[in-house]
Design a protein around this nucleic acid. Sequence first.
DNA 1: AATGAATGAGAATTCATTCAT
DNA 2: AATGAATGAATTCTCATTCAT
Lengths: 213, 213, 213, 213
Amino acid sequence: MVYRRTPAVVTRLEDNRSRILAAARDLVAEGGWQHAHVASVARKAGVATGTVYRYFPSKAELFAEVLANVSRRERDVVAAIVDGEGTPSVRLRGAVEAFAKRALQGRRLAYALIAEPCEPEIDRARLVWRGALCEEFVRIIEIGQQQGSFRACDARIVGTCVVGAFMEALVGPLAPEDLGDDAVAQALIREISDTCLAIVALSRPAGRLRRIA
Amino acid sequence: MVYRRTPAVVTRLEDNRSRILAAARDLVAEGGWQHAHVASVARKAGVATGTVYRYFPSKAELFAEVLANVSRRERDVVAAIVDGEGTPSVRLRGAVEAFAKRALQGRRLAYALIAEPCEPEIDRARLVWRGALCEEFVRIIEIGQQQGSFRACDARIVGTCVVGAFMEALVGPLAPEDLGDDAVAQALIREISDTCLAIVALSRPAGRLRRIA
Amino acid sequence: MVYRRTPAVVTRLEDNRSRILAAARDLVAEGGWQHAHVASVARKAGVATGTVYRYFPSKAELFAEVLANVSRRERDVVAAIVDGEGTPSVRLRGAVEAFAKRALQGRRLAYALIAEPCEPEIDRARLVWRGALCEEFVRIIEIGQQQGSFRACDARIVGTCVVGAFMEALVGPLAPEDLGDDAVAQALIREISDTCLAIVALSRPAGRLRRIA
Amino acid sequence: MVYRRTPAVVTRLEDNRSRILAAARDLVAEGGWQHAHVASVARKAGVATGTVYRYFPSKAELFAEVLANVSRRERDVVAAIVDGEGTPSVRLRGAVEAFAKRALQGRRLAYALIAEPCEPEIDRARLVWRGALCEEFVRIIEIGQQQGSFRACDARIVGTCVVGAFMEALVGPLAPEDLGDDAVAQALIREISDTCLAIVALSRPAGRLRRIA
DNA sequence: AATGAATGAGAATTCATTCAT
DNA sequence: AATGAATGAATTCTCATTCAT
């Protein structure tokens, strides 16, 4: 009882909590939601199953926090770039490439967190963070529009398209699987960031050009 | 044997199989894979659970067929447009808009079939059809490139981006939910098809233009 | 209705009944009771599942009849030998060898009918026919005892032992599997019939001899 | 972890595992494999069905262990006698009688474990232990042959016959059912062991004696 | 008489959550 | 605070039997 406030125990508690979170994250990174059972998490964290429930009220909330932790980090990285130096184009390209590089390092995790839903409650958490990530892209698009670098468009919708485009090409089920070669990965990232820039580029789409001509 | 040829029985046989398929599809359309249990399908189809197994060897094969049926239809619609008349730009825009219109009519179903996985076996079927749909977009991009209407790029990657872009904006978790208003839906579709055209448009990306200039 | 008595239909009925019985027997001969489903029987017999129930009130009664048919034939063969010519020893040996030869021609069937139980109701039928077969061996033992050729013993118990001995060696799970070679089969049958004769031979068992000596 | 060493918990763990095994064994002893369902075992053991799966990965492995436990004990008893004192005849007789006495105490169980198959996986376990038991009888026969006490024969085949003979008379479907009377049981056992000795006795089979004479 | 689709009770197995220790 | 065994509802699949046609 008294111990509760002693740093040692707090550390211990935090230790356990962190280890459970880390174990959960690693499990998702390895096998997606399919194998992310509470018992597996506990085993990997080196605690008893019941202990998981001392720190998290339910499986869903545990994994929602896993998702939030990872997603927040990605969002922050992107946000820092959006708020950084350079033209809107440079920043948009930088944000896409930064996200891509990180996602490619842990694609299974990225896929699970981004695209692979399972329980509705976890899905809700995903929605929040996917929205937060998208928001950053909406922001840079709006900045670009204000500066006259990007074409006029509904930034919210186009931002969603940008996110969809690079995610699908990076971690979607149709994304190339053999990215062991760094050069191949670099080329993929380049192509994707070119594509995302094209989405917001000033020039009118080809279809309209013709019609006008 | 003899009965097989009587229209009444043929109808009846087809009826049940179709009703099971329809029930399965509707269930997915309503609640995603989460609630797509064999027992629910049977109840909704008005048959016994065992009857489901007369027509489908397993739950996975039933839902794989649901997925294939819907997906094939979408793929065929898109393919017809890709093989149709008009400039590559007109055709790409047409394909995107046709898919969008249809997807918006049953977004929950579209989402489940496109993005929401569950059992690995069903997932495999999804992959096939998602790949087939993507292939159509790759094709029109390549046609556009050959005719000089679209920019030089890796058609496969960019095709994936196009698919990701419009799917995310249409049925992804960030897609707008209140599309009851037809005008709003029309505007969304327009914006998405503009965006997809922008992806392949001839003009060089804005980011590079600046740098060069 | 009227047709019922016309020979053609009677033939047809008998035809169907026989085909169902034959199909059932063949199925057991191929895969034991494990795969002896009513639907499989019907398919193999070329009739509808429901038709099986026109001729047999239940699965159990169908297979009980299969069992009875085959077993009766074996019993009759053995009975004929028991009632035939020759010394009791010759007849006992003949009966064992006749049974063995026939059993080896269809060991899966023999095993299923003799040793592999499944449903209690079928088991009851097996009991009857196994008893009938055993009875023939009891008879020949008693004849041998009356003629002073066989040792004094409880013919019923020893008859059971004889049946157990040759069945175990012939179709039991420990029986040799590779009897493709006729010479090997011949040797096995010889050894078994020697053994069965030894069971009833006049000489006192070795254990007693020693003690007396 | 810590608890594991406290006797109370060890007892408890062992208790439940044992109770499940005992319940499974009793269920087989009462009704054979027919009524040996996981749910019944759990009910009889006083635990939830899920608990069974904490201790055994599958129904088949649970019952395979039941079978192995009982069979190993029987095999060991027989092996000890085979490796014990006395002439081969005395030992063979002792082994048969020991097995018989034990088998008569739980005939339904003995029958189920010895003869009544059900699931192929359990069957495989049975085969192993039945073979192990048989092996002991083969061994004593070979010992007897080496010492000149038993007749020349294929020990493997004749060992199988011995096992078949006493099993059939003891627990086979033709074995007498009313063995409540100890005297009757004693007489049965005596007759069976006499018979098994006769199988290996030195004297030439009667059939041959006659012919030669 | 024949058909064979439909039935539905059952059986095995999983896993998030609880709770006595 | 930690443990981890126990729970049991939920889910998929099977197959003997029935019955409308």
